[in-house]
């Protein structure tokens, strides 16, 4: 089995979905998550706060520099993520397809190189 990160590619600009639409999305996401759990592939998932809530820490000599805001301002950011444990890319892409259908945003499927 191998771990894959499914990232939700969220646009920085444009209108956020309204309350009804958001509720419908969350219902679909909940169904998807319970399907992942019953299939035994779900490891972790969560939605992230907006990038401007981020803080970046970077070592600089003996110090650690603290910067307010995200590492880089981009047109898209990772708005949420799921980690799954599946046999191969075909299986990971199956769950990626289900995710983009549920969320309505692009999903990046990326293999882990190393996990504990």
């Amino acid at each position: 089995m191998a771990h894959y990160l499914l990232s939700v590619i969220t646009p920085s600009e444009g209108e956020a979905p309204g309350e009804d639409e958001m509720n419908a999305i969350m219902t679909d996401v909940a169904t998807l998550q319970s399907d992942m759990q019953s299939a035994g592939v779900w490891v972790f998932s969560g939605g992230l706060e907006a990038p401007d809530t981020a803080t970046v820490l970077a070592r600089s000599g003996d110090d650690v520099l603290v910067t307010d805001g995200p590492f880089a301002e981009l047109k898209e950011y990772v708005g949420g993520l799921t980690i799954i444990d599946v046999p191969d890319l075909d299986a990971a892409m199956h769950w990626g397809r289900r995710s983009t259908e549920a969320v309505g945003l692009p999903i990046e499927v990326r293999p882990f190189h190393w996990t504990p």
């Binding site: 191969d88 890319l89 075909d90 990971a92 499927v109 990326r110 293999p111 190189h113």
Partner: peptide, 9 residues
Amino acid sequence: AARIPYRVP
């Protein structure tokens, strides 16, 4: 790296 499977679908 991404484990593209070696099999017929």
